[in-house]
């Protein structure tokens, strides 16, 4: 499995566990690194993309995952699935800590309890979750992302006229690459430019 090649030993397992949680509870789940907290701004990382994660953050040992401490109905499913993998709990590759209403999953052996980083991360999460916009049930983005990706597009119009699966694909793919402004179309051809 590709993930195992990238995240060896305990990091494979903690990453797998985080993935399960993320997929089933996307609106309140964030993954980031400790060092990232210093910058305080780009905490959301799609954990389905371990290659990117490893690329951007060269120390996977600093990876932490946070979710709400007060579980909703979906959380029960998450807890069950996470436990059923036998990864997070039985092997003790991640440890839990509750901070300001959030459960923090962190790699064992990392010291997150000293200093204020963990508090800051929880605070960041609180901020982000308050700013979330539900595009359709089960799919939420930050308000900034909503404006960037869907601003000016009448999603309601399409939701009423498209089959649900088409609408979901249409919306989830819209603006999924942030990109840069100013690249001309001539660059699209392999041998042009």
């Amino acid at each position: 499995m590709e993930t195992k090649e990238l995240f060896k030993d305990k990091y494979v397992k903690s990453q797998d566990a985080a993935t399960v949680v993320y997929r089933y509870y996307p609106s309140h789940e964030y993954v980031g690194t400790i060092g990232q907290l210093a910058n305080y701004g780009t905490a959301e990382i799609p954990v389905e993309q371990p290659q990117q994660l490893l690329r951007r953050y060269d120390d996977p040992a600093s990876l932490v995952t946070i979710r709400r401490a007060e579980p909703a109905a979906e959380d029960q499913l998450v807890t069950y699935l996470t436990g059923s993998t036998g990864v997070a709990n039985s092997q003790r590759v991640v440890e839990e800590q509750q901070v300001r209403g959030y459960v923090v999953l962190r790699p064992s052996g990392t010291d997150l309890t000293s200093g204020s980083l963990l508090e800051e991360f929880a605070g960041l999460l609180e901020h982000l979750t308050q700013e979330l916009v539900e595009v359709y049930p089960g799919f939420t983005v930050t308000r900034e992302d909503y404006q960037c990706r869907f601003g000016g597009v009448e999603l309601d119009y399409y939701q009423q006229r498209m089959k649900p699966d088409v609408f979901r694909s249409f919306v989830k793919s819209m603006g999924t690459v942030r990109g840069v402004d100013g690249l001309s179309d001539r660059s699209l051809g392999e041998y042009e430019g």
Binding site: C148, R149, G151, G152, V153, E154, Y157, Y158, R161, M162, V166, F170, S173, M174, G175, T176, V177, R178, G179, V180, D181, L183, D185, L188
Partner: peptide, 28 residues
Amino acid sequence: DANVWVSHFVSARPKHGTSSTVLGDLLI
């Protein structure tokens, strides 16, 4: 054409909203 698809996927492109709207209309 590819440029319409690209603008749908890339939010920074000037015609991102317009091309996504067109794509939505065509998908319907």
